[in-house]
Design a protein around this nucleic acid. Sequence first.
DNA 1: CCTTGACGGTTACACTGTAACATATGCTAT
DNA 2: ATAGCATATGTTACAGTGTAACCGTCAAGG
Lengths: 173, 173
Amino acid sequence: MSDVRESADPGQGLTAAAFAPHDHKRCRVEGLARAEAVAATEGLRLTAVRRRALEILLEAHRALGAYEVLDRLAADGFGRQPPVAYRALDFLVEHGLAHRIQRLNAYTACMNPGRRHAPLFLICRACNAVAEAGGTRVRTALEGVAAEVGFAVERASVEAVGLCPACRQAGGA
Amino acid sequence: MSDVRESADPGQGLTAAAFAPHDHKRCRVEGLARAEAVAATEGLRLTAVRRRALEILLEAHRALGAYEVLDRLAADGFGRQPPVAYRALDFLVEHGLAHRIQRLNAYTACMNPGRRHAPLFLICRACNAVAEAGGTRVRTALEGVAAEVGFAVERASVEAVGLCPACRQAGGA
DNA sequence: CCTTGACGGTTACACTGTAACATATGCTAT
DNA sequence: ATAGCATATGTTACAGTGTAACCGTCAAGG
């Protein structure tokens, strides 16, 4: 229970800065740049819809439902039927450019694309912010438990619901 | 809630015996008995529908969708509209007698009711078996990461998809 | 040119979950 | 006992989430 406010993260490559105030615009620009880089090195086709879908997630800076993404895509002149959004989102998730938050039936841009990572999500029940935390500790623990029963983990989702620092302070009980 | 009281089992108190061959009937009988005990000590009303819903989960011994549970309830003379199943399942989950598997939109009986625990689910993608593992290691790691960014975890879901021992051996590529 | 394959668009539908209201059951205070 | 209240079960109707299947477009390559 060590109280850490917003110190620079120690090792672990934490990315959960989402809870700290920051410059959204930079988030979007850098996020897109990272995605472009990943797409280039992996030979992915980051088409217009896909690119725009990712941009929408980066701008929102919170988890968006597929239909929310769809609305924005439609507003930009893309198709307005569900598969349009689902296909773009599936693509992004499959290639590690976005994540699906099971608990919310929603999607969020990946803050750390390109590197293999075992993301973990912190979902604030008061303000709905979603932070992606990195780090191997949880994954290692999970692998350990699985190994004890002979289970081979391929993919894992770890999602915690609670209160973010700001909402805690605001007495978000 | 960060206080997780686990059994005194050596090595994490695993309960993931689900992957090992075992006597289903006993599972059901003992599961019901445990639930009765919990209901008694906590003053819960384990009514006919609720009890039957739990029994259905225990019998299936895998995760069931709400509508699957509903079908069986209806076949037993209970209502045949969705809220019937959802209410029973919500009750069971709320009181720790069952768990919801987010990834599958499904429910499974709790193998360890009564005690506060931080369950973790191992989902075999080949045979669809779901094992509930206990243990504090993963939870502790999660709390640690959360604490670093000042996030207060209230509830967490940890779900891993992969291959169970049997399917691994069967070359479940 | 013409085939091939990926992509994006559509229609139509399936699955999952909930709001709101009506009825029954059981407890409690008088 | 019974009136009043809370809880539980049942209903109808609908909202939200996700997918199957088909079709036209377009770029790459024989």
